[in-house]
Design a protein around this nucleic acid. Structure first.
Length: 807
RNA sequence: GCCGGUGUGGCGGAAUUGGCAGACGCAGCAGACUCAAAAUCUGCCGAUCGCAAGGUUGUGUGGGUUCGAGUCCCACCACCGGCACCA
């Protein structure tokens, strides 16, 4: 009689046993495997079924690695606990963020425990723990000492709702990545990290990584390296020069005017008295434009400065204009305009009636009536003096060198990547460990005085002025200069949330070290991360910042490797039942807690995998878990019956066993976890038939199945393993190996086609000759080929037999 | 606009990479068990024509390559994601 297994009893029992006797122990001899989840922000809302998915995937993988290859698995968990929600909650309720954070951590810790994952909580880290952020600050001090952290006043992205500056990576479509408010510009003095110094290494390091191509591409585009030339243009009647950056120096003869960004430093100097009023009005208007306006409105605007530049090659006079389509912070903030070969310059020239000179021709002839810019670098040079007749693609490569030889400019490289704006005007973050001294300037807090503790404040309210709430605590702000001992003031900005997450993965393996960030010995032994699992939303944020930090820590000798995450897997989101993102405000958040209670952890684990391909978004359908639960119950009965019946193995059972091993292992290695589950169901259905026919399957087969299923349904499988008579945990079992010769079929069903259409299926022995196969096939379709002429016979052994006929 | 990705039953999805399309599961329908229901079990389940055997058609659209195409090639459409005046 079919019975349901008691998931509450079994799961409680094994949870307790694993706690008493941990299954994942480091004996110092086993090879390590570091399988990491992106650590969560401990939000008050707790975990939903979407968080579960990533943690289930990583735990299945960790347990598989533990069995396959006998690894000691590093599979830790921690808390990315600085950040705005806790601070906003504090503003509303007056409760200190540390208290609400601790509550949330405790709650989520319970939820994570329900997943039944292997976790070593001795490694737990929390970014808000002074013992942890001491090292976040220490890294900043090292960067400061190496000239990578510097202060700069510049127009910055400002979120008026969060009341804080944002890094470029945090601005999406001109809006705040976190709250969606329109981002404005604000001129502020801020701390910057020189991530641009690592641009080339960040780009080149991507090559060796087993990451999704999509993420590599996003980082490549974000870094945005381009090759070209800087060219100097003299200003007519002045000693000043304008330097432009161009990727198309081959079109230099076609430059007919120039455009500077409204913020360019020469604007005031080159504006003529007649144009002064118009220029000032234009610059003021540009300064007030929001990022959204600037991005969305592509209609060209501009104003003439009244001055002219000289084309260095042909001496032509070029009008100098201002326009906000030229960005102040890319290249040199000034461009030479070649309307014939650039869409934007073309639109600008058409609008303001500026000359257009074609210098590249597809067919060697000039087009007297250009309707759009010809932007490809292929064709013959015309109107280009000594360059006439050259192939433009060749010239594009050679022009920078030729220009450099003539002393008109130089070959250069440019990047879209900007330095990282690293300070935030908020309370709940790591204080930046700097003291400002009137005599010595900014001075790093000495390492033996770290951490600089975050003080308590009266009010968490951020200000509109760009000052942190910390600035109001005189007793904390006023200190002495570590250098000269005179009165000085502390830096009151805090670090962005990304600071702790940029290096936390290093800390897990030596979480209690109070002398070093991580000991070199442990770093060499346990790092880097072998498999990193998390959402794709951090492609250019956390994942780029972590690579930058790791490269820096490599350069100062803390670690010996340059890339933190060898392999990356991005799991898809679990969407709400209607296919929209789960969110508190939409009220479509599904909590795992009830399902764990009703169906058990093992059922939910498997359903999270079965719902769809792991890298793809999937809409939650709560009915689907019934199918998985039925499968586990069915398997429970098959296993119990087989253990009891203790039948002798048959050739069918041996074949099933070896096919099962091969199928599951291959799909697991391909990360096709949803199909692993369907294969388990298929084989279980076959075994259920064997139970009906012969009372059960043999002991080896059922034990093999239990072993393979163990990473997916660990509690159930441990219980069954024990019922098979084993004393030791199933997870110390080696991963079964398949013998291909035992898995192979000796008779195959082969479809017989006539002209590519299936007309019959015949059974053929795998070693049947072509003649035998053809004979059998012709017999099977005899009535259909009567009177027809067979033109061609195709036989692919074990797969297909096709007869091409003509009537 | 540029660059990626995806498109298969009522639904989630499978197809060992060019060889039986729709595995597995959900939902649905019919039956068994039951006084009844739930649970469980058995069968059916793309469309279309047919009483049936069986035929035709079918993987976003149109073409092509091939004995054979969901899979490869060309053109297009739709949706999703990334970047977006980067010279």
């Amino acid at each position: 009689m079919a019975v349901s297994y008691n998931h509450i009893e079994i799961e409680t029992k094994w949870r307790k046993k694993w706690e008493e006797n941990p299954i994942n122990v480091n004996d110092g001899k086993k090879p390590k495997y570091y399988c990491l989840d992106m650590f969560p922000y401990p939000s008050g809302a707790g975990l939903h079924v979407g968080h579960w998915r990533g943690y289930v995937i990583s735990d299945v993988w960790a347990r598989y690695k533990m069995m396959d290859g006998g690894h000691y698995v590093i599979h830790p968990m921690g808390w990315d606990a600085f950040g705005l929600p806790a601070e906003n909650y504090a503003i509303k309720t007056g409760q200190h963020p540390a208290i609400s954070t601790a509550d949330n951590v405790a709650n989520i810790r319970k939820q994570i425990d329900q997943i039944g994952a292997i976790r070593d909580w001795d490694m737990e880290v929390n970014t808000t723990d002074p013992a942890f952020y001491k090292w976040t600050q220490w890294i900043f001090v090292q960067m400061f000492k190496h000239g990578l952290a510097y202060e700069k006043e510049m127009p910055l992205n400002w979120c008026p709702s969060c009341k804080a500056v944002l890094a470029n990576e945090e601005v999406v479509d001109g809006k705040c990545e976190r709250c969606g408010s329109e981002v404005t510009k604000k001129n502020l003095r801020q701390w910057m990290l020189k991530i641009t110094k690592y641009a080339d290494r960040l780009l080149e390091g991507l090559d060796g990584l087993e990451w999704p191509e999509k993420v590599k591409k996003m980082q490549t585009d974000w870094i945005g390296r381009s090759y070209g030339a800087e060219v100097q243009f003299k200003i007519d009647g002045s000693d000043e020069e304008i330097t432009v950056y161009t990727t198309r120096p081959d079109t230099l003869y076609g430059a007919t005017f120039m455009v500077l960004a409204p913020e360019h430093e020469l604007v005031a100097k080159i504006t003529t008295p007649e144009q002064k009023e118009a220029v000032e009005a234009y610059c003021a208007a540009a300064a007030n434009k929001s990022s959204v306006d600037r991005v969305q409105n592509k209609e060209k605007t501009g104003v003439f400065t009244g001055s002219y530049a000289i084309n260095p090659l042909n001496g032509e006079k070029l009008q100098i204009w201002l326009s906000d389509y030229v960005l102040a912070d890319y290249g040199t903030g000034a461009i030479m305009c070649v309307p014939a070969h650039d869409d934007r310059d073309f639109a600008f020239a058409k609008k303001f009636g500026l000359p257009i000179v074609q210098v590249i021709s597809k067919d060697g002839k000039e087009d007297p009536d250009m309707q759009e810019a010809y932007t490809e670098a292929s064709g013959t040079m015309i109107n280009s003096g000594e360059w006439n007749g050259m192939e433009s693609s060749v010239l594009k490569e050679e022009a920078p060198i030729m220009i450099e030889k003539k002393g008109l400019g130089k070959k250069t490289v440019n990047y879209k990547l900007r330095d990282w704006v690293f300070s935030r005007q908020r309370y709940w973050g790591e204080p930046i460990p700097i003291v400002h001294c009137p005599d010595c300037g900014p001075v790093a807090v000495p390492e033996d005085q770290l951490p600089v503790l975050l003080p308590d404040v009266e009010s968490y309210q951020p200000t509109d002025t760009g000052e942190s709430p910390l600035a109001a605590i005189d007793s904390w702000v006023n200190t002495t200069c570590p250098c000269c001992g005179k009165p000085a003031k502390r830096e009151t900005n805090t670090m962005p949330q990304w600071a702790g997450s940029s290096w936390y993965f290093l800390r897990y393996v030596d979480a209690h070290n109070d002398k070093e960030l991580v000991s070199r010995e442990k770093a060499d032994k346990y790092l880097p991360v072998d498999m990193y699992i998390g959402g794709v939303e951090h492609a250019v944020l956390h994942l780029l910042y972590s690579r930058f930090y790791t490269k820096f820590l490599h350069d100062i000798g803390v670690v010996s490797f340059e890339e933190p995450f060898t392999r990356l897997f991005n799991q898809g989101m679990i969407l709400g039942p209607k296919g929209v993102k789960m969110s508190k405000s939409l009220g479509n958040v599904v909590s795992p807690d009830d399902m764990v209670r009703d169906y058990g952890c093992d059922s939910l684990r498997i359903y999270e995998l079965f719902i769809g391909p792991p890298q793809q978004d999937s809409a939650w359908d709560e009915r689907g878990i019934d199918g998985v639960n039925r499968f586990l119950n069915k398997f429970w009965n098959v296993a119990c019956d087989s253990i009891e019946a203790d039948v002798k193995e048959t050739p069918e059972m041996v074949k099933l066993r070896h096919k099962l091993i091969a199928d599951i292992t291959m799909r697991l290695d391909q990360f096709a976890l949803n199909t692993v589950v369907s294969k388990f169901m298929e084989y279980n259905n076959q075994m259920a038939k064997m139970v009906q026919e012969c009372g059960g399957v043999d002991k080896t087969t059922i034990e093999t199945y239990i072993t393979l299923l163990a990473p997916f349904a660990p509690h159930l499988c441990e219980e069954l393993w024990e019922r098979c008579g084993h004393k030791e945990t199933i997870f110390h079992n080696a991963w079964p190996k398949s013998d291909a010769s035992l898995a192979a079929d000796d008779v195959k069903e082969v479809p017989v086609q006539l002209n590519g259409k299936i007309k019959a299926v015949i059974k053929l022995s795998v070693d049947a000759s072509k003649e035998e196969a053809l004979e059998a096939a012709k017999k099977a379709v005899a009535d259909k080929i009567q009177g027809a002429q067979i033109i061609k016979e195709i036989y692919v052994a074990g797969k297909i037999l096709n007869l091409v006929i003509k009537k």
